[in-house]
């Protein structure tokens, strides 16, 4: 380009400057994501490196021995499984029904707004406060004592907002034309919801359920006083038993044990197992969602 007049040339150098600024700025933004990525990698690397060596068949299937300085974490795995199961049994029906109500029945209005505000605020209630609530309501008022049931129900209420949000997202993805088509044929609301809205929404809801599960499995604070035990020589045999749980076990090995540095490898092993468990749950949720989205696009 030879015929640029001076004015345009000036703009040109300015443009170079502006482009340079933009490149630098975008680089900084990208850098921030790299920082986050590095943080994540350091955490995962450290725990994997020091934890994976501890993992063995015995570690996963044995109970702790000799004052928790030896042996495995089997009772903690079982306890986490049970307590998460109870939490799911509480959160899933309540969450899905709430989502159906919000998305299909009370589309607008004051009650809907109030429920939504409550759910958003519930999601922000500190987990330790849920623990206190669980103590006051389930352990004492309902007389469950510290138990799987009390801890599971506390965790279930804690994960309710996650379940509702995910279930609602799944319901929202169902095209409006199904609903209209059903109603125009003279279906009642419930017939329409049951036969046309819920079936295509099930995979999406499952995603929400799994996300809630992984949240519940990793929580510690709510079960501190509602049922988790320091050490139990036996497995829980009823919903009213106390139990060991992976996150609480890690907490104890890391801070409460009399030989903290001695049991550090066990702590790393526990942390690794907990991470793997939570990630497997999350990963299956992500994969499910991915497949489900593709499917929805085909419609």
């Amino acid at each position: 380009m030879k015929i640029l007049n001076p004015d345009l040339k000036k703009t040109n150098t300015e443009q170079v400057h502006r482009n340079w600024t933009q490149t630098a700025a975008f680089l900084c933004l990208r850098l921030s994501l790299i920082v986050v990525f590095l943080i994540l990698m350091v955490i995962l690397y450290d725990i994997t490196k020091k934890g994976i060596g501890v993992i063995s068949w015995l570690f996963l299937t044995e109970a702790p021995r000799t004052g928790m300085t030896e042996g495995g974490i089997f009772p903690a795995i079982v306890g986490t499984f049970y307590v998460t199961l109870i939490a799911t049994l509480v959160a899933v029906p309540l969450g899905i029904i709430t989502a159906i109500y919000l998305n299909e029945y009370a589309l607008q209005g004051r009650l809907n707004r109030l429920i939504r505000i409550s759910l958003r605020n519930m999601a922000g209630v500190p987990s330790i406060v849920f623990g206190l609530f669980g103590v006051a309501l389930f352990v004492q008022r309902m007389g469950f004592r510290p138990s799987l049931l009390a801890a599971g129900m506390t965790l279930g209420l804690l994960t309710l907002p996650v379940t509702v949000t995910a279930a609602e997202e799944a319901l929202k993805a169902v095209p409006k034309s199904y609903r209209e088509g059903g109603l125009a044929l003279g279906a009642t609301k419930w017939q329409m919801v049951k036969s046309l809205v819920l079936p295509p929404a099930v995979p999406g809801m499952l995603t929400g359920v799994i996300l809630g599960l992984s949240r519940a499995a990793g929580e510690t604070a709510p079960i501190l006083f509602t049922g988790a035990a320091f050490f139990l020589p036996y497995l829980p045999d009823s919903p009213f038993s106390q139990f060991m749980a992976l996150p609480y076990h890690l907490f104890i090995l890391a801070t409460q044990h009399h030989d903290i540095s001695g049991v550090r490898p066990l702590a790393y092993g526990t942390a690794f197992v907990l991470l793997v468990l939570v990630f497997m749950l999350n990963l299956s949720a992500v994969l499910l969602r991915y497949r489900y989205r593709k499917q929805i696009k085909q419609f």
Binding site: Y178, G181, L185
Partner: peptide
């Protein structure tokens, strides 16, 4: 009322079911 007065939409909106189930939906409900 909607049983007596049917509606066909602008965009064809079959349900994500089989052809048979689509037609049988109304009588079934």
């Amino acid at each position: 009322l909607r049983r007596k007065v049917g509606l066909v939409f602008q965009q064809p909106n079959p349900f994500p079911k089989s052809i048979y189930e689509n037609v049988a939906y109304g009588p079934k409900i």
